[in-house]
């Protein structure tokens, strides 16, 4: 892979990869680690499953590369494809969405809550695990939105493009997700 290609932006690579597949290889190389993390967090998929999912995602990206609209970020578009692929995977596997946030246990509270009160309330490992369990009890649509906002660190605009919902809906859902999370935690006696 020529080093000059790695300096190109995603959008430039998309334009170029229509002529030369080598540019597509740069995009794949760039997004494999990010999407692997995303799939790992969003599921309990095995390494083989992840490999299959990544393959399906990039095949779809390549097949539909002419659909990409330059008015949105390439990362939002590829995450949208990954998100839809994950939904299909869950449907095929007949499983309920389960976030795998064990690697995030250390700083899950500071990611989800900004106030010190919560940080002190869920300070030990057991309480942090309780937060992870509570996140997994949330409605499907709230899990997705919290994952994208607080773990993938996407902006409201990007989340709107990934989930194909109006930006206002993103703000409302994040707010409701936090309220539901608080409710679940209170119900389980962590207050």
């Amino acid at each position: 892979m020529p080093p000059s290609l790695t300096t190109l932006t995603d959008e430039q690579l998309v334009i170029e990869c229509k002529k030369d597949q080598q540019h597509f290889a740069v995009l794949v190389e760039r997004y494999v680690p990010k999407l692997t993390h995303y799939i790992r967090r969003r599921s309990l998929a095995t390494s083989d499953d992840i490999e299959d999912l990544l393959q399906n995602i990039f095949i779809k990206v390549y097949r539909n590369i002419n659909e990409y609209d330059t008015s949105l970020l390439f990362s939002s578009w590829i995450y949208r494809i990954a998100h839809n692929e994950m939904i299909d995977w869950y449907r095929r596997e007949k499983r309920r969405t389960t976030l795998s946030l064990d690697d995030e246990a250390q700083d899950i509270v500071s990611k989800l809550f900004t106030d010190d009160d919560h940080v002190t309330r869920f300070s030990n490992a057991e309480q942090k695990q309780m937060v992870i369990d509570a996140v997994n009890k949330l409605d499907e649509k709230y899990k997705d939105i919290l994952l994208l906002r607080f773990f993938e660190e996407k902006s409201y605009e990007e989340i709107a493009d990934i989930l194909t919902v109006p930006p206002g809906t993103v703000a409302v859902r994040i707010n409701r997700a936090k309220k539901q999370l608080e409710k679940i935690l209170t119900k389980h006696g962590t207050n």
Partner: peptide, 24 residues
Amino acid sequence: MEQISDTTKNILSAIQDKHVTPRS
């Protein structure tokens, strides 16, 4: 030349094996 990972290689060869082409 930078090295590309095995995953990337697998994905690219899957695209070639399945004769995937971009839609018009």
